[in-house]
């Protein structure tokens, strides 16, 4: 295993099937574009100050807009989205997790089940187990962790990244989704 495929929290070992590394972020953009029914799940950390230079919520909103995909805000994160005038659906992490694992769930709009779920901003260990639940119990759903750390139960995940590289990757994805690229300053 290369160092980049190590889970951020050392003991969170997944098993035989672990996330493929996102080495070319533009591929994520392509996957989102290709997906028939993608969805983005944003945890409460998205609504907090991630670092001096990063507000994760801004990336969530930009991805949501650029890809025109529904965003689920877990915990109390929805209040930050409301303040920014962005419409996110409020649902707990466990509720959206269990619904995504249900092949009969027709989605937030009743139009059908999702085939791609992007995750960011959940506590690492919570995202770890929810992604595991989806890996094992939702055969038709692919998952992508867009957090800064390798999360092995996803279908695809970034490796453990510096803040600068993480931002760079997110900007590349956004560019692929058609948004004008912004400079990365950390």
């Amino acid at each position: 295993m290369s160092a980049k495929e190590e889970p951020w929290q050392r003991a969170e070992i997944a098993g035989p099937k672990k996330a493929l590394l996102i080495l070319k972020p533009e591929v994520v953009g392509a996957m989102v574009k290709k997906a028939k029914r993608p969805i983005l799940v944003a945890g409460h950390l998205a609504a907090e100050d991630y670092s001096k230079s990063v507000r994760m919520i801004e990336y969530v909103i930009r991805i949501g807009k650029a890809a025109n995909i529904p965003v689920v805000a877990t915990a109390h994160a929805v209040s930050e989205f409301i303040k920014r005038g962005f419409q996110a659906t409020s649902m707990s992490a466990m509720d959206i997790g269990s619904r995504l694992a249900d092949p009969e769930w027709k989605g937030l709009d009743g139009a059908g089940s999702y085939d791609l779920a992007l995750f960011m901003g959940l506590p690492y260990y919570m995202e770890f187990v929810i992604l595991s639940g989806l890996k094992h119990f939702s055969a038709n759903l692919k998952t992508i962790s867009l957090d800064r750390f390798y999360n092995p139960h996803a279908s695809w995940s970034f490796p453990n990244l510096s803040v600068k590289d993480w931002k760079e990757n997110l900007e590349t994805i956004l560019a692929k989704l058609g948004e004008e690229r912004k400079d990365v300053n950390v």
Binding site: M94, A101, S132, F137
Partner: peptide, 8 residues
């Protein structure tokens, strides 16, 4: 809703 730690 099962949330396995690992695959094995």
């Amino acid at each position: 809703f099962y949330l396995p730690y690992c695959d094995v």
